[in-house]
Write a protein that binds this DNA or RNA. Structure first.
Lengths: 190, 190
DNA sequence: TCGGGACGCTAACGATCGTTCGGAAGGCGG
DNA sequence: CCGCCTTCCGAACGATCGTTAGCGTCCCGA
C-alpha cells in the first residue's frame, strides 16, 4: 500500500479515536494530510472504508497478540501472557484499539457482521483459557468461568480509556493476573 | 418539568445510547416524538442540552446508588453493596448508563469539566473503599489498591456493553465480588 | 521521449445538519 | 369571553456533510 494511503489510515485511526467516527468529517481527515477533502477520494471510495480498515487492523493486532501465547503449559501462566498481550496492543496501538473497542459499532452491513465474528472469536479464545483452567483443576473446580472471563475481559476492554503509551503493560498485566488468581483477601475462604 | 419535555429527554437517552450523540440528528429526535424537528426548540435551546441532561442524570443515579451503601461496617460487605448498586443502575437505566459511560465525551466547555469532576468523584468513592479495606486489614495489607480499584471499576464500566434488563444484577455483583475477594485459584498462595 | 499512473486541485453536487422565525391552534385560569 | 402559555407547524436559514467530476502536474519505467 502506498505511503500516502497509509498516512490516511493512520490519521483516520487517530481522529476516529479522538473525536469519534461520526464526529470526524472528511474535511478533518483532509486537513490532517494537508489536502483538500476531494483529494481523499484518490485513495478511498468512502469514509466507511477507513473505519473498516482500522477496525480490521484492530482485529488482526489482537488476534496476532493472542497467537503468541502457547497452546500448552500451565493455564495460569497462559492467562497471564494473554493479558500481557492484550494490554501491550492497547498501549502500543491506542488509536486502533480504541476504534476496535468503541467505534466499530458504526460499521454497517456485512462488514459489521464480519467484525462481530472476529470479536466473538477473540473473546471465545479467552473464555477457553478459563474453562480449561477449571477443567484441568488449575483453577478451583467450582469456578464460575463465565464470570471470570467477563471480569478479565472487562479489564482488557476498558483499558483503552485510561492506558497511555509508555506504561509498563507487562507489569500491569501481572498485577491484574495476581489479583484475579488470588483475590484481594489474600487467604482462603470457605 | 412538563410531560413533553420529559419524553424528549427519554428519547434522547435512548437514541444517544443506540446511535451515538453525533449519529443522532434532531430529525431523529423529532421523529421519536412524532413532531417536526423545528418543534423541538419549544423545549430545548440546543441538542447539546439533551446530552448534558442525560449525562447529569447518569451522574445523579450512580451517586445516589452509592449513597445507599453504609459508611460503616465490614469493607468487604460495602464493596459488595457498591457493586450491586452500580450494576443495578446499569440494568435499570441502561440508556442513561450508556451515555454516562460512553457519550459524555461529546460534552463541551464547562459542562464537560463539571461532568468530569463528578465522574472522578465517583471513582474516588470506590477507591476509598479498597484503600480502607487494606488499611484496616480486611484486605491483604500488601494489596495494590489502585489496581484492585481499576479492576472493579473496569467490570462496572464495561457492564453497559453486555448487561440487559431483567438480569439478576445482585447475584451478578455477588459473583464479581466473590471473585475479586478470593480469586479463581481458590486457595491461599504465598 | 513518450505514456501512464499517482496525486492533488477547483468546483460543484444534492442531502442533511442544527437552528430560527412568525404564525396558528388548543387548553386553562381570570 | 379574553388573554396567556404551551406546543407545534411550515418554511427557510447558512453551514457542513460525503461524494463526484474534470483537469492539471509530476515522476517513473519503457
Amino acid at each position: 500500500m502506498s505511503t500516502r494511503r497509509t498516512e490516511l489510515t493512520r490519521a483516520a485511526a487517530r481522529l476516529f479515536a479522538e473525536k469519534g467516527y461520526h464526529g470526524t468529517s472528511t474535511a478533518d481527515l483532509a486537513d490532517a494530510l494537508g489536502v483538500q477533502k476531494g483529494s481523499l477520494y484518490s485513495h478511498i471510495e468512502s469514509k466507511a472504508d477507513l473505519l473498516w480498515e482500522v477496525a480490521s487492523e484492530g482485529s488482526a493486532a489482537f488476534h496476532a497478540a493472542l497467537d503468541s501465547v502457547p497452546d500448552e503449559g500451565p493455564v495460569v501462566e497462559r492467562i497471564r501472557l494473554a493479558l500481557r498481550a492484550h494490554l501491550r496492543v492497547v498501549a502500543e496501538q491506542l488509536d486502533v484499539a480504541t476504534v476496535f473497542t468503541r467505534e466499530w459499532r458504526y460499521l454497517e452491513g456485512e462488514r459489521r457482521e464480519r467484525f462481530l465474528d472476529e470479536r466473538r472469536r477473540y473473546e471465545e479464545r479467552f473464555r477457553a483459557l478459563f474453562r480449561e483452567g477449571r477443567e484441568h483443576g488449575e483453577l478451583r473446580t467450582d469456578l464460575d468461568d463465565a464470570t471470570a472471563t467477563l471480569l478479565a475481559l472487562s479489564a482488557a476492554n476498558w483499558a483503552y480509556t485510561w492506558l497511555r503509551a509508555g506504561v509498563d503493560t507487562d507489569a500491569l498485566a501481572d498485577r491484574f493476573t495476581a489479583l484475579l488468581l488470588d483475590g484481594m483477601r489474600g487467604y482462603a475462604s470457605r
